[in-house]
């Protein structure tokens, strides 16, 4: 995919320098394009005193702020792809927000095992098993049986800065 390769190259220039070359992108054509972004959830109090939630481009972020990490995927190829799995490690400095959907398939052990959060347990500091909490989530995973040519979609998860 030329598009992907060129986008990545621009990113490298913006970063200034990078030791790792982008050669693998040219070695094999990729049909799938992934594009990540992040928004800050900002509560704006209107003139009438009612609060509305806006998603804005993060400018100043501090602990406690809520972020929405998103990944747009699209199949730019001519063939459907199968067993499409997107895996997203949760950055250490954030925790999964408590209002995240329980439909999300997550891991609380570094990606070893997976399931809905409500079905997972972790070993507490006292050595006893306890129900997993949103802050225990280390990875999030989305699975689609197939993505048709030209199809696209968006995957999101909410997180709070620790």
């Amino acid at each position: 995919m030329k598009k992907f390769a060129s986008t990545f190259a621009i990113a490298l220039i913006m970063a200034g320098t990078l030791g790792v070359a982008a050669a693998p992108a040219q070695a094999q054509q990729k049909d799938i394009d992934l594009k990540g972004d992040v928004k800050l959830e900002k509560v704006v109090t209107g003139e009438n005193g009612e609060d509305t939630v806006e998603l804005v481009t993060p400018d100043t972020i501090v602990p406690g702020d809520k972020l929405i990490f998103g990944t747009d995927y699209s199949n730019k190829g001519t063939q459907a792809v199968a067993n499409f799995v997107v895996t997203n490690p949760v950055p250490k400095a954030v925790r999964l927000a408590p209002d995240a959907s329980d439909e999300l398939i997550v891991s609380v052990d570094g990606g070893e095992s997976w399931g809905r959060l409500s079905a997972l347990t972790v070993t507490g500091e006292d050595g006893a098993q306890r129900a997993a909490a949103p802050e225990d989530v280390t990875h999030i995973r989305w699975t689609l049986a197939s993505v048709a040519p030209g199809a696209s979609g968006r995957l999101e998860y909410p997180a709070i800065i620790r």
Binding site: G36, V81, N83, F84, P91
Partner: peptide, 11 residues
């Protein structure tokens, strides 16, 4: 805070 997603699939 660095977030990267990775897709794996069968082409």
């Amino acid at each position: 805070i660095e977030n990267t997603a990775t897709a794996t699939y069968d082409d």
